[in-house]
Amino acid sequence: MLFAQSEGGTLFFTPPASTVAPQVDSLFYLIFWISAFFFALIVGLMVLFVLRYRRRPGVEAQKTAHHNMWLEAAWSIIPAILLVVIFVEGVLGYLDLRNPPDEAYEIRVTGRKWSWAFQYPNGHVENHLHVPAGRPVRLLMTSEDVIHSVYIPAFRVKMDVVPERYTKAWFEATKPGTFRLYCAEYCGTEHSNMVADVVVHEPGEFEAWLEDASNFLDKMPPAEAGKLLYERRGCIQCHTTDGTPKAGPSFRGTFGSEQALADGTTVKVDENYIRESILEPLAKVRAGYRPVMPTYRGQLKDAEISAIIEFIKSLK
């Protein structure tokens, strides 16, 4: 059924995947049916009147009252009552959406042009959001530059991410799977690529995943660890590995080359230049690119920077 709320999704909704989603969907469909009724009434009467009272030769318009207090009061008051119902339902759902339970698992979210960083209580940072099913998760969010917005349609959750301020969102995922997280507040060039996956793990498997994910630096060769960091920490949003430029230059074939800078000088791309570009991105901007990269100072450890350098070196 296209218009009824259901587990399998409807015309207007993907299947609900959080505890608040069914509540949002049912309010949506309540408004939908009220609207459908009034729309059918308006258009129905309009079509009826046009057919019934279409201008014909020799037939004059009939006189009717110029106003009717009772009729006008009725169509002011009846919709008003329905609106109160919609308003109250909206407020109740909103309070549930906005106020997380006390025992929620907290994940810190940082938005920056144009990637997400999700930090877990043990300090592990990644660009995709991993959460356990069946447990409330609280997002404590801030931005490093402009306003972004975390939007997870499957959970019906959205909250702006504002610089120099913390905002909060919460949800409890109801089933394992992979969902989309979008930036919903326009933030510049790569806004439409500022998306992430939300991976919902089976209740017991989340801790194992986190343990495993946190230790990758010790377990694999630096270049491979660098590749993971490249994917997880947002480099991938603006730098490709196939030679095509995006908001930033591609990593392929760049190490060891001479590159022109925006100020007219040139630079040799070596370990120190890459390190400087990560920590102070605006110091030496490559010619043809806008000075838009945020700094990673304080966010990447030395070992992580070294791993990224090794990864770039490996891209001959």
Binding site: Q23, F28, F39, I42, V43, L97
Partner: peptide
């Protein structure tokens, strides 16, 4: 004018989804 009644009807009624808080959180900026 009839076209207006039809289209403004839809435009006005869909405003209800956006005025209600719980649904607006989901629909905002989409």
């Amino acid at each position: 004018a009839l076209s207006f009644l039809f289209l403004f009807g839809i435009g006005g009624l869909t405003g209800l989804f956006l005025g209600a808080l719980a649904t607006d959180v989901h629909l905002h900026d989409t």
